[in-house]
Design a protein around this nucleic acid. Structure first.
Lengths: 234, 234
DNA sequence: GCGACTTTGTTCCTGCCTTCACAAGCGGTT
DNA sequence: AACCGCTTGTGAAGGCAGGAACAAAGTCGC
């Protein structure tokens, strides 16, 4: 509550904070009361020094010589990430991927609740997914208004993603998670994050090809490898 | 084939090349024969100068004053990304998310074929998903050996992800796409990419909280906003 | 045939992120 | 009460990605 300094938090750090929070939840379940930066960093797959720097954006939250209090750090991260209160989410596109997301327990346990599932296909309307009934996409504005949804998730085909996005924004949604393989354009003040599944596979394909081509090259230099990227999706 | 200079390609660039390739496929379907960097960049949601820099890693592939040949650039990107040949993929964890991925048409059309679906739950074994039958996870080594799968996709619960990963690596898989919310540890020479869905939502939640807290602050500076992220148009 | 326009490819620069290394601080022990 | 070991927090440096501006080059029009 008493954020001494309103320091800015880099987005890359925010993504890692979410990972730390999850690791802490596991530690708390295991009965641990304190953790060192080294142990926490190992579990999160990051550099210990980087972890300390990430946490330093929140102000001092550890005890030197001891480590971090699991409960205390967890609370601080929860507050910082805005995970204290539940965030209502609207999902558009109740296909296979959309249904999988709506039913994913990992969201609900972290304060994200799907309060509306919408689809344009009449065959899907009325289906029960994750405790909710799929409604026609025409109800989009009504659902957003009634539920005060703050986050929109788009899992529609690429062709209609932009129009769905526009309607979400017009209805008041200012945070959008986009799974459709298109670059959405939104007005200032609206945040979009994109998850592109086929891009992930193609990056792996590229790295594999590099491996196949480069064995003859110097193995020590390792310039092409360009690291593995364990962190966020990006 | 005649890569004049074996220039290294940054991983961030590789991810964008995959996006360009998809945009080009759409342009080719529309009958377009040439594109300028500006148009291509707009469709991909990136800066035109950055796009040209990305493409310059492949050597000169455009014509000054004209632009890029859609077919030519597409071929070059396909070769670079290793998307020319089909990549067999094994998916472990045929739950909702796994089934959605196995059935996703966007993968097959880009040369990724799921040649094996595995699950530990006897209730799921035998189910038909995306034209394949779910097999017991005990068959993992046999399936990898028989199909020469080069990419493993993990959509299991977090608790078993590391053991599944170890088995995949032992069986010869050297590229892994991990959807389980844990940091996998792998030996050198194995590439892992992680997609963390709940992290994406929590980053949005953080940005939303920032928006709610910062209106009183100076709106012009916009330091906290920290940009929008991945593929956002801007 | 020549000029002007368009577009690429490159270079420079700025800012951010990551990493290393060290000083400061706290608990436990004697 | 003082010392010692352990851990955090921070400062500095290096590397990398992103963006803007400029020169080279090729085409189109006259």
């Amino acid at each position: 509550m008493t954020q001494s300094r309103p320091r800015i938090v880099p987005e890359a750090t925010v993504a890692r904070l979410a990972v730390y929070l999850r690791v802490l939840a596991g530690l708390a379940d295991g009965g641990r009361t304190h953790v060192s930066s080294g142990e926490l960093a190992a579990a999160a797959g990051v550099n210990p020094a980087g972890l300390r720097k990430d946490l330093s954006y929140l102000g001092p939250c550890g005890v030197r010589g001891v480590g971090y209090s699991v409960a205390g750090l967890r609370q601080r991260l929860t507050d910082t990430l805005g995970a204290a209160r539940s965030r209502p989410c609207v999902l558009v596109g109740a296909g296979r991927l959309g249904s999988a997301l709506a039913d994913y327990a990992g969201f609900a346990s972290r304060g994200f609740e799907f309060v509306g599932l919408l689809d344009a296909d009449p065959a899907r309307v009325g289906a029960q997914v994750g405790g909710h009934t799929v409604r026609p996409v025409d109800d989009l504005e009504a659902v957003v208004a009634a539920t005060q949804a703050s986050i929109g998730v788009i899992t529609t085909p690429a062709e209609v993603a932009q129009s769905v996005c526009d309607r979400l924004v017009a209805a008041g949604v200012r945070s959008i998670l986009n799974f459709a393989p298109v670059a959405l354009s939104v007005p200032a003040g609206v945040d979009v994050r994109k998850v592109d599944l086929s891009v992930e596979l193609q990056v792996l394909s590229f790295l594999e090809q590099q491996r196949d081509d480069s064995p003859p090259a110097a193995p020590t230099s390792g310039p092409v490898r360009a690291a593995v990227a364990a962190g966020a999706a990006r």
